Simulated scan of single mutants.
Amino acid sequence: MVGGPLFGYVIQKFGIRYALHLCYLSTMLSGLALFFSFDYYSLLFSRIPVVFMHGQQAHQTLLSALTQPGKEKTSAFGRMGLTFGIGFIFVPIFSIAATKIGGDLAPLLVSAALCVLPSVVLETCIERKSNEHDISVDESNGPAPQIYFTNVVRILQKPGVLNVMAKKNGGVIPFLMIIAVLNVVGYTLFTLVFFNFWMLLVIMPFVSLGMSVVATCSDSLLTALVEESEQGIVLGTATSLNSLVRTFSPLFAGSLLQNYGFQSLTLLGVFGSLLAIGLMIVSPVDENLIKKHKTE
């Protein structure tokens, strides 16, 4: 929750290449520190580097810098989402193999070692640009960042940003509350017909497709609505909002579940998704607000 916007500030201040290396290094250090943890306090210490372990945010920012707003950027975000999905499939296989060979803690060492690979790819396969280490903010892009919280508020107040945030989170916040991925059709099916386990086969395709499209298109729009130097911060703010919901959702969702039953959560999802759809109809994003790359 703290690291998302903070990592976005690092991107804005020092550039995406520096931030990516910081992300890889933090991931490696967190794995090594966890491997060598021996008591409660050393375990807590091992979580400190996680503040900068924001791979999805970092690579979305990189893709934003390499692609044009619109179809090209949205397609790139979608492909990155596909790679994350593939990772979720194969990572358990590698973890089991590492555990069989080196013991229960071996996956931590393997993950730390693998962090060297993306650093090499970044340095050898991604073209270096003049603004990657020092992203300056000129007068046309707004005032230079001073107090960080004020800077976040300034970005959120830009035309269209809160509009897209509301549409994205109308369906996402209920999803975070019930630790599942559900959309309009999906919530309704859960509410009305989910009384046998096999019905998940009917529900989940709607769920997965709906939320994948919402997340990909929303993040693409958010980066297109702000200046290039502000893309990391707006993505970090969106990530932190999700983390904030995850922090408090067990209490709120547990209370709803205990007092009103499972269907209260799915009905909340239906309401949130319908609210997002309503905003799309009543308050569409002005296409003239979408920023173009500085090189154009």
Rank of each mutant, 00 (worst) to 15 (best):
Q231M: 04
V245E: 12
G254V: 07
G31K: 04
I277R: 02
I11N: 03
V184N: 03
V116P: 09
G15R: 01
A166L: 10
S64Q: 11
F14N: 06
I281W: 14
C23V: 11
E230I: 00
M1P: 08
A65Q: 12
L6H: 05
T99E: 15
L25H: 01
V10D: 09
K168F: 03
A97Q: 12
G272N: 11
V285L: 05
K294A: 05
L268F: 09
A76N: 10
T74Q: 02
S64F: 13
L29P: 05
I173H: 08
R128D: 08
M204S: 05
I203D: 06
A112I: 07
N183T: 04
I96F: 05
Y260V: 00
L225K: 04
G15H: 08
L32M: 07
C115Y: 08
I281P: 00
I86C: 06
E230K: 03
Q231K: 11
K158F: 11
N196W: 05
P145F: 09
F252P: 01
V152C: 11
I48G: 12
L209D: 09
C217Q: 14
P143M: 10
R246K: 09
V213I: 14
L20R: 05
P250V: 01
I89P: 08
G278F: 06
H59I: 09
T295L: 09
L235W: 04
L222R: 13
A106G: 07
L114W: 13
L257D: 07
T150S: 06
F262V: 07
L6T: 15
N151K: 05
L256E: 08
T188I: 01
I126F: 04
F94T: 13
